[in-house]
Design a protein around this nucleic acid. Structure first.
Ligand SMILES: NC(=O)c1ccc[n+]([C@@H]2O[C@H](COP(=O)([O-])OP(=O)(O)OC[C@H]3O[C@@H](n4cnc5c(N)ncnc54)[C@H](O)[C@@H]3O)[C@@H](O)[C@H]2O)c1
Ligand SMILES: NC(=O)c1ccc[n+]([C@@H]2O[C@H](COP(=O)([O-])OP(=O)(O)OC[C@H]3O[C@@H](n4cnc5c(N)ncnc54)[C@H](O)[C@@H]3O)[C@@H](O)[C@H]2O)c1
Lengths: 268, 268
DNA sequence: CCGACTTTGTGCGTACGTTCACAAAGGCGT
DNA sequence: ACGCCTTTGTGAACGTACGCACAAAGTCGG
């Protein structure tokens, strides 16, 4: 058919020769790091992949594969040296240097973040707080004076901020983000419930509590809606549908587990 | 039915997961929902997958596939009816009913969450606040009185709480979680930097701001050394490296992609 | 120095997720 | 009534992630 030879069209760009660490792995490294810190504090010198994986709540094979992306840092028959591994992961994550972080939007959330001590201990220094409200600007929070948003560009540059936390309302978020990026910020942690669009090369991660709750609600509904997704029953119904081959077979199959059909009538 | 009469070619058997919606899709539905709400507020009646995808910041094919898991709710040549889609997604996510949510640990973060209005508007009713500190218990926050942690079981049951937000320090988190689950909670949104272990059937989602920052730092480190990460340039240089396959790649390439290689030598 | 034992690092099969591309569906103008 | 144009829904290719299972590598007691 006409659709085939695509594989030749694109010069294959396979894995960039080992250097690129999978995103999924990167997301787990902080987890390992935390577990390792806890072990180090307890004076543990050496840990096996099995133990560390248990502490981090992951499969041990996955942990080993993750670590193998950083290099061969384990000793067969023994495990990993805790201190050494802490250092290697820290280095890989860029935590051996200090990062200046700015928080923009010092409301309920921004305030809580500013007070939180868990950042400094990981190499993130809160270098500036910014807000637009006259009542907020000038306040001192956790030892830092809130600066006016008009000074954004100056503050970002003076402090060498490259990572910003965005905690303004949704409305001004994109605008503020644009200014941050223009001022030199290249990573944004966004709490505002909006999809930010940024230039290529700028990294945005979002934290959206509403979304998390909605995902939980989805699963919650599954649980309460009848018994726990009875697989047997579902199969039986699908088979029944196959046998009958009724008019709306597809739809019935699609909605087998529930009476969405009834809802259909509710529309409008 | 009025809607469709899909091709008879394919036996209606998408697999044993007739009703199972992929987790990745579930995670995006709230995003679509938010975009749809915004459209509805602007009075838009109909939207194409292309437009909606842009608003949600995803690929349009992905959006269509996601929606196709809910049913065939679009009209070819036209798009999706906004109101109808809002209803269908809401129903799928279980947002047509009200969920009673408890927040445990009313410190910096718990307080911010309690004050946040964005939950109620999505069908999440904050039904209880719980804390252990005598100074906090009895306070009224956002119209709700903080109850003592000793009353956890009673409160959870009285209010019919099935979703809890855990915002205590890391130390007591697992213990509190166990009590919550024992009292009937089956979904937990965890802010404490610990890996919670729960019985099967209980859903835990975690929000960890430190981890998010560390992931950003990782990417930030990759960028620094060059100016603004120019994707084209990077690819060109990587190709060069591949071709040469030598230890001494260009300096710029070394910084961008081969940094870890050099570090490799530093070990020991 | 050896052989038993432990644990790593990874090949491989499988499952899941993403994206492309297009036939089929349906509206709409004429 | 018809053909054009837009857009959906989905098959298929591709890519990424996961976890099992095991050979290789190393430790350690004797
Ligand atoms: N508080 C929560 O628990 C929570 C939960 C989920 C999401 N969020 C989101 O996080 C963001 C912040 O929430 P919040 O509860 O702190 O809101 P908030 O209203 O308490 O605080 C917002 C702060 O941003 C400031 N601000 C407004 N416009 C600004 C601008 N242009 N530049 C700089 N600062 C500006 C305001 O002065 C205010 O201090 C919101 O987008 C909210 O939707 C908050
Ligand atoms: N504040 C932040 O920005 C932030 C950021 C990332 C992570 N976190 C995490 O979120 C959690 C809460 O952070 P926070 O800043 O609000 O801390 P916090 O110390 O301000 O508040 C913790 C609250 O939990 C209460 N508490 C302690 N033990 C309890 C128990 N056994 N039962 C019930 N309540 C108990 C305390 O009385 C206190 O009110 C912590 O685990 C923290 O690591 C917070």
């Amino acid at each position: 058919m006409s659709r085939t030879q695509r594989s030749q069209l694109r010069p294959p760009r396979p894995g960039i020769r080992g250097r690129g660490i999978p995103e999924a792995t990167v997301a787990r490294l902080p987890l390992y790091l935390r577990a390792l810190h806890a072990l180090a504090e307890r004076g543990v010198a050496t840990v096996s992949s099995e133990e560390l994986a248990a502490a981090a709540g992951v499969n041990s094979a996955k942990l080993r594969k993750d670590l193998s992306h950083l290099g061969s840092y384990g000793t067969r028959g023994v495990g990993y040296e805790v201190q050494y591994l802490v250092y290697q992961i820290s280095r890989e994550l860029g935590l051996t240097q200090d990062w200046a972080v700015a928080i923009v939007g010092i409301g309920n959330l921004g305030r809580a973040l500013a007070h939180y001590g868990g950042f400094a201990s990981r190499g993130f220094r809160i270098a500036a707080l910014l807000d637009a409200a006259p009542g907020v600007v000038g306040q001192t929070i956790a030892g830092i004076t809130v600066e006016p948003i008009d000074d954004l560009e100056r503050v970002i540059k003076e402090q060498g901020v490259s990572i910003a936390v965005l905690a303004t309302p949704a409305g001004p978020a994109q605008l503020v983000c644009d200014r941050l990026v223009a001022a030199g910020v290249t990573s944004v942690l966004n709490f505002a419930p909006v999809v930010l669009s940024v230039a290529e090369g700028v990294h945005v991660r979002k934290v959206d509590l509403s979304i998390e709750l909605q995902i939980l609600a989805f699963h919650e509904q599954r649980k309460s809606g009848g018994t726990v997704m009875d697989a047997e029953r579902l199969v039986r119904e699908l088979d029944a549908v196959d046998a009958v081959d009724a008019v709306d077979a597809t739809e019935a199959a699609g909605e087998a587990a529930e009476a969405a059909e009834a809802m259909e009538g509710m529309r409008q």
